[in-house]
């Protein structure tokens, strides 16, 4: 028999929990996210022990709330719970105000919901003059990371080796580059239409 963790979707696991009131279904759901939630906590808290404590706290909270409320998108919900918990932790760390401010500033940019762009399709049409021009308007770091990842199909690891950037920097250049590219392209298309 296949393990339910591998065969059921998040919604199905939650439905089974509601139907049977058996917490084991939640256990399988939580296991699916344990490593990722720990990773999110690790990103913000930058300490494995603190991140483990935070992860534990997040799942304790989840255990209480999942039975009280209807959660349509568990993935987004658990992500916000983890992120908010870490941000609260950072706010409470009064001893390092500088670091906290810096991190919060970095995070607030992440919190902006961005409508994802169909980057792949757009980059396939690299011949498009708009896209070429838009790529040239990006910072050198963003431009080279976007080109290497989408056009040359290099892995993050290869980009790290080629550029000397860290994993976080590569991820950030690609994500920010995509966002900026979308803004520039929208502007160019508007100008073109007018």
């Amino acid at each position: 028999m296949k393990h339910p963790q591998n065969t059921y979707t998040d919604t199905e696991l939650l439905q089974q929990f509601r139907k049977t009131a058996d917490s084991q279904w939640l256990g399988w759901l939580f296991e699916r996210y344990s490593l990722l939630v720990f990773g999110v906590c690790m990103k913000y808290l930058r300490n494995a022990t603190d991140a483990q404590d935070a992860t534990q706290h997040v799942f304790e909270k989840a255990l209480g709330e999942v039975s009280k409320y209807e959660i349509p998108f568990f993935k987004s919900w658990i992500y916000s719970v983890a992120k908010n918990h870490c941000l609260m932790q950072l706010r409470n760390r009064s001893s390092k105000p500088g670091t906290t401010d810096e991190l919060l500033e970095e995070t607030s940019a992440d919190l902006q919901t961005e409508q994802e762009l169909k980057m792949k399709e757009l980059l396939m049409e690299e011949q498009s003059s708009h896209l070429k021009a838009a790529l040239n308007e990006l910072s050198q770091e963003q431009k080279s990371c976007i080109q290497m990842f989408y056009l040359e199909k290099l892995s993050y690891h290869d980009i790290e080796t080629k550029t000397g950037f860290s994993f976080s920097q590569v991820k950030s250049h690609i994500q920010n580059g995509k966002r900026n590219l979308r803004i520039i392209l929208e502007k160019k298309i508007r100008e073109h239409v007018n």
Partner: peptide
């Protein structure tokens, strides 16, 4: 890697896990 570029949870998680 395409997923983690699109997905905030996965992207953040990977960034954190890379610190290990």
């Amino acid at each position: 890697e395409e997923m983690l570029t699109e997905d905030e949870l996965l992207g953040d998680a990977m960034e954190g896990l890379k610190q290990l």
